[in-house]
C-alpha cells in the first residue's frame, strides 16, 4: 500500500513538473527565438523559422546584427531616455500614490470616499481619450529651466514623466494593501504621539515592500512600453524612447535580424528590473490574492 502511494506521488510529481516545464517552455521560447534570430543573417533567419533551428544557435552566427542596429539608430540614447523617464516616473509615482493611498485609508477627512471613487473611475478611461486634451495642455504649460521661463513642454523629459506620476491603478494597489495592515499598529503609533508623517515613514512604508515592488513593476512596464504619448509630444530624436525607436527598423525592406537584435537589447533593462524585484513581486501577489 505504502509502495503504491509512493509510486503515485512520484508519478504526480513527474506530471506536475512536466506540465510546468511545458508552460515555462511556451513562455521562454519567444525570448529564445528572439535571441537566436538576433545572431543570424536575414536569409537564414527567415529559412530557419520553418524548423526548430529557429531556436538554436546554428548556422552563420555572429553579432553583426547588433553592430548594424547601433549604426541604424542611436540605441544607447533611446535606452537611456527610456530608463531615465521610466525610472523617475516609477520613483515619483510610488511616492505620490502611496501618500495619496495613505491619506485615503488612514486619515479621516470629508469626501475621501467620493474622491477615491472618482480616482478609481479613471481606470476605465482609456488614455487615447485624453491624449489630445493632454497634448494641448502640455504644449502651453510654462517651465522654469536653465533658459529661464519657457512656454511649452514638447520635446522634453518632463512631458513624458509628469502626466504619469499619479494614476488610479497604483493608488488602488496601495489602498488595498494598506487596508490589510493591522489598524492597531497605526493606532499605537498615534497614541505614542507619532505624527501622520512619521506613521507613513516609520510604520506603513517599511511594511509596504511587496506592494511597492508590484506597483513598481507594473508602472515600469507601462512606462517602458510607452509609444503613443512620446510619439505625440517628442519630435526631437534626443528625447525619443525605445518603443518609438523601434520604428527605425521597420523600413520597406525589413532587416529582421536587426529588429531582433534591437528587441534583445531593449529587453535587458526590463528583465533586469523584474529579476531585481521578483521575490517581492511574488510575495505581493501571494499576499494580496490577485493571482491570475
Amino acid at each position: 500500500m505504502a509502495a503504491i502511494q509512493s509510486d503515485n506521488h512520484g508519478l504526480r510529481l513527474f506530471v506536475r513538473y512536466a506540465v510546468l516545464t511545458l508552460i515555462a517552455v511556451i513562455f521562454i521560447f519567444p525570448l529564445i527565438f528572439m535571441l537566436m534570430s538576433s545572431l543570424k543573417p536575414d536569409q537564414q533567419l527567415l529559412t530557419d523559422t520553418e524548423s526548430l533551428r529557429a531556436f538554436l544557435p546554428v548556422g552563420d552566427i555572429s553579432l553583426d546584427n547588433y553592430f548594424a542596429a547601433f549604426r541604424r539608430a542611436p540605441v544607447g540614447l533611446f535606452v537611456f531616455n527610456s530608463v531615465l523617464v521610466t525610472g523617475l516616473t516609477v520613483l515619483l509615482s510610488l511616492a505620490v500614490c502611496s501618500l495619496a493611498a495613505f491619506a485615503f485609508v488612514f486619515i479621516d477627512w470629508r469626501g475621501r470616499e467620493l474622491l477615491l471613487t472618482l480616482i478609481l473611475a479613471t481606470l476605465i478611461v482609456p488614455f487615447e481619450t485624453i491624449a489630445i486634451p493632454l497634448l494641448l495642455i502640455s504644449a502651453n504649460l510654462p517651465w522654469i529651466g536653465l533658459e529661464g521661463i519657457t512656454r511649452g513642454w514638447l520635446n522634453s523629459y518632463q512631458v513624458q514623466i509628469v502626466p504619469f506620476i499619479a494614476d488610479g491603478l497604483t493608488i488602488f494597489l496601495f489602498v488595498q494593501y494598506f487596508k490589510d495592515l493591522p489598524g492597531e499598529l497605526i493606532e499605537a503609533a498615534r497614541v505614542e504621539g507619532a505624527s501622520w508623517g512619521q506613521v507613513y515613514r516609520k510604520v506603513v512604508m517599511p511594511l509596504a515592500g511587496p506592494v511597492l515592488a508590484t506597483a513598481a513593476i507594473l508602472k515600469f512596464l507601462a512606462m517602458y512600453n510607452q509609444y503613443l504619448w512620446p510619439l505625440m509630444v517628442v519630435q526631437q530624436e534626443a528625447y525619443r524612447p525605445v518603443m518609438v525607436g523601434l520604428q527605425y527598423f521597420f523600413q520597406l525592406n525589413r532587416a529582421w535580424g536587426e529588429i531582433m537584435a534591437y528587441l534583445s537589447l531593449i529587453t535587458v533593462p526590463v528583465l533586469a528590473f523584474y529579476l531585481f524585484l521578483q521575490r517581492a513581486f511574488i510575495a505581493s501577489i501571494a499576499s494580496t490574492g490577485i493571482k491570475g
Binding site: 489630445i132 497634448l135 494641448l136 502640455s138 504644449a139 514638447l154 510619439l231 505625440m232 509630444v233 519630435q235
Partner: peptide
C-alpha cells in the same frame, strides 16, 4: 504621419 498631425494640433 501621426507625429505631424500631433505637431499640427500643438501648433508645432
Amino acid at each position: 504621419n501621426d507625429s505631424v498631425v500631433a505637431g499640427a494640433l500643438a501648433g508645432n
